[in-house]
Amino acid sequence: MFDLFGFLNTKASSKDVAKERLKLVLVHDRTNCTPELLELLKTDILSSISEHVDYDTSNLDIKITRTRDDSSGRPVLVASIPIKNMKR
């Protein structure tokens, strides 16, 4: 049966969450990115942008994942940094 309103259900199943976590672990393993290296990258990125913007640390998300636009699944660094305001 077709779920006409299925797109309104934004809650991910535990299976989907576990699958995404496993993908992230595999990407981290394949790129040899240790948690320490990821923390260094985060620190450098935040240090660089803090000269130009004020950002919200509560919703900060920086991670290494893989591309979705091609079949190679190359690792990419994804940063979601909510900006409070621009500095002049």
Rank of each mutant, 00 (worst) to 15 (best):
V78Y: 12
L4M: 01
D70R: 05
Y55L: 03
I62E: 01
L24K: 12
D44S: 10
D3A: 04
I49S: 11
N85T: 15
L26D: 03
A79M: 09
K84M: 03
D16I: 09
T10H: 11
I83M: 08
D61W: 11
L22P: 02
I81K: 02
N59D: 14
D29K: 14
M86W: 10
L46I: 07
I83N: 12
L38R: 08
E39L: 12
T43R: 14
N32M: 05
L8A: 03
P75L: 03
L24F: 00
N59H: 12
V17D: 02
A18P: 01
R21N: 06
M1L: 15
N9R: 00
M1V: 03
F5Y: 04
P75F: 02
L37V: 02
R66M: 09
S14W: 03
E39F: 05
K42W: 13
S47M: 12
R68W: 01
S72F: 10
A12W: 00
N32L: 06
D70Y: 13
N59A: 00
K84H: 12
L37W: 04
D70P: 07
S71C: 02
D61C: 02
D44Q: 07
P82R: 04
E51A: 15
L4T: 08
L37P: 08
S13F: 06
N85S: 15
T57E: 08
D3L: 04
T67V: 05
L40G: 09
S72Y: 13
L77I: 10
S72E: 14
K23V: 12
S71V: 13
R88P: 14
V78K: 11
L46P: 13
S50Q: 06
L4F: 01
K87G: 09
F7D: 03
T34C: 00
V17W: 03
H28K: 01
L26T: 10
E36P: 01
E36S: 12
K11W: 04
L26Q: 10
K15V: 00
P75G: 05
D3G: 05
T10K: 14
A12F: 13
R68S: 09
D56G: 01
K19G: 01
S50V: 06
D56N: 11
I64H: 07
D70L: 01
